[in-house]
């Protein structure tokens, strides 16, 4: 299938891109790696009037050390992110999760920021960003602003980005020593989206869990934290994980669709939470 017609510009700078997007109006869209957008264009589920191609903006690309955090350029392809030394050292969960995104060819084109901005409820990276307390740097006609991950994902396929704003980079705090991670992605075939995914970040201290963060993929309109489980895990030993995980689906309202009914998703969230936390805790 062939996309409906649209205009195309390839600005030379982020500022130009913002301007083009702003002038393009509501039907202008950012084109980054295009790996989510292109199928939608081909199926004519998306019919933008203008695509602003940001895929070559050097300003959006790369990973840098920013003291107590690393900053990942929104336009950095998945393949670069998952192999980046800074990411592997300071945000290994990002590398682990990115390796589960789509397939190698798509990871060559698809970008870190593109996946986050697309905000598919079944996408894996939003959950990792939420768990790690990422901060999203957004550029628009009015300048820059920063939005926390918890506020960035607002609904199904919807984010805090205005139509004329571009995600510039994502700041991911270094969690420091003592943290370990796991991501449990549950899907039916290697290509399929996650029915449910669970990201766990665990800090151990003196033989028990000092602090845990648990993020859920596809358990609602966007990524969620399993707060009750997190609270129950604080101070828990190996034998406390199962009971804590039983609370993982609290306050979730996952969809029922072709791939799973809501109650099965909730069941999976509990099982996968136990597994992810157990793996991350490494008792």
């Amino acid at each position: 299938m062939i996309p409906a017609a649209f205009d195309y510009v390839r600005p030379g700078s982020l500022d130009e891109a913002v301007r083009a997007l702003h002038e393009g109006g509501e039907d202008a869209k950012v084109l980054a790696g295009g790996q989510s957008l292109m199928p939608m264009l081909r199926m004519r589920l998306a019919t933008p009037s203008l695509l602003v191609d940001c895929s070559r903006l050097g300003e959006l690309r790369g990973v840098r050390d920013d003291g107590d955090a690393i900053v990942i350029g929104a336009g950095t392809p998945h393949h670069e992110v998952m192999h980046d030394a800074l990411v592997r050292a300071h945000a290994p969960l990002i590398a682990t999760v990115t390796a589960t995104v789509a397939d190698p060819a798509i990871r060559h084109r698809g970008t870190f920021g593109g996946s986050l901005a697309h905000a598919d409820p079944a996408a894996d990276l939003p959950t990792a960003a939420l768990v790690l307390g990422a901060q999203f740097s957004i550029v628009g006609p009015g300048g820059r602003r920063t939005v926390a991950a918890a506020d960035f994902f607002t609904d199904f396929f919807t984010t805090a980005l205005a139509a004329d704003e571009i995600l510039e980079s994502v700041r991911i705090p270094k969690l420091g020593d003592g943290w370990s991670f796991d991501y449990q992605k549950f899907n039916r075939t290697a290509q399929a989206w996650a029915i449910v995914g669970v990201a766990a970040a665990v800090r151990r201290s003196n033989g028990s869990i000092a602090e845990a963060r648990v993020g859920l993929t596809n358990m609602g309109a966007g990524p969620l934290r399993a707060s009750a489980t997190e609270a129950a895990l604080a101070g828990a030993g190996a034998d406390g994980i199962a009971a804590a995980a039983e609370q993982a689906a609290q306050n979730t309202s996952p969809t029922s669709d072709l791939h799973a009914q809501a109650d099965f998703r909730q069941h999976l969230a509990r099982v996968l939470t136990r597994r992810a936390v157990t793996n991350a805790a490494r008792f």
């Binding site: 199928p39 199926m43 039916r188 075939t189 290697a190 290509q191 399929a192 989206w193 072709l258 791939h259």
Partner: peptide, 24 residues
């Protein structure tokens, strides 16, 4: 292949009709 009650094919693309990959 899955249809809804109105006769819409829900598994109407390779994204929803799951063909096994090399990894499966």
């Amino acid at each position: 292949a899955v249809y809804d009650a109105d006769g819409n094919l829900l598994t109407a693309s390779m994204a929803d009709y799951l063909l096994p990959t090399a990894l499966d």
